[in-house]
Simulated scan of single mutants.
Amino acid sequence: MDDRPTAAGALIRELEGHLLIAAARAEGRAEAVRFAGSLVWLTDSQREEVEAHYEEAHLALARRSWERTARRGSELRAEYEERYRALRRRWWATALVGAALVLAALALTTVPGA
Rank of each mutant, 00 (worst) to 15 (best):
G17Q: 07
T94P: 05
R47K: 07
L96P: 04
G113W: 13
A114W: 15
W66H: 04
G73K: 12
L15G: 09
W41V: 04
E75L: 03
W41Y: 08
Y80W: 11
A7S: 05
W91F: 13
E75H: 03
R83L: 04
A26E: 13
A26K: 08
L106H: 06
R29P: 05
A95L: 14
G98A: 15
E51Y: 00
P5Y: 04
W92E: 14
A93D: 15
V102E: 11
A57T: 02
E81W: 11
A10H: 02
R13D: 10
L76I: 07
R13W: 03
L108S: 12
A10T: 02
A95D: 13
E31M: 08
A78N: 03
A107Q: 08
V102T: 14
A10R: 02
G17M: 02
R34T: 14
E48G: 03
E81Q: 13
A8G: 04
T69Q: 13
G73N: 15
V97T: 08
L42E: 00
V33E: 15
G73M: 13
L96M: 11
R64C: 07
R4W: 15
A86G: 05
L59A: 05
R85D: 14
T6E: 13
L87V: 04
A70M: 10
E51S: 01
I12W: 11
E82H: 08
E27M: 07
G37Y: 01
S38F: 01
W92S: 08
E27F: 06
V33C: 09
A78T: 10
T6N: 08
R68K: 11
A60D: 11
I12R: 12
R83V: 04
A62D: 10
R88M: 12
R72A: 09
L76N: 12
E51F: 01
R72G: 05
R68N: 10
R88T: 07
G73Y: 10
A22V: 06
R71A: 11
A30E: 15
P5M: 07
A57F: 07
D3L: 12
A22H: 08
D44V: 01
S38V: 02
A60C: 05
A23H: 07
R63M: 15
S38T: 09
E48Y: 01
L101G: 05
S45A: 03
P112L: 09
E81D: 15
Y84I: 04
E27L: 09
R90I: 04
T69W: 12
Q46V: 00
A30M: 15
S74P: 03
R25F: 13
P5H: 06
R68S: 10
A105R: 11
A114S: 10
E51H: 01
E49F: 00
T43S: 06
D2W: 07
E14N: 05
T69M: 09
A107F: 09
E51A: 01
T43F: 00
G98P: 02
L87E: 15
R72D: 12
E14I: 04
R29L: 14
S45E: 06
E67F: 11
W66S: 03
E27C: 09
R25E: 14
Y84A: 07
E81R: 12
E75C: 02
L96H: 10
R47W: 02
R68M: 09
A99D: 11
E56A: 06
L61G: 05
Y84K: 08
R83G: 03
H18M: 13
H58V: 02
M1Q: 08
A7L: 07
E75A: 02
A95H: 11
A86N: 05
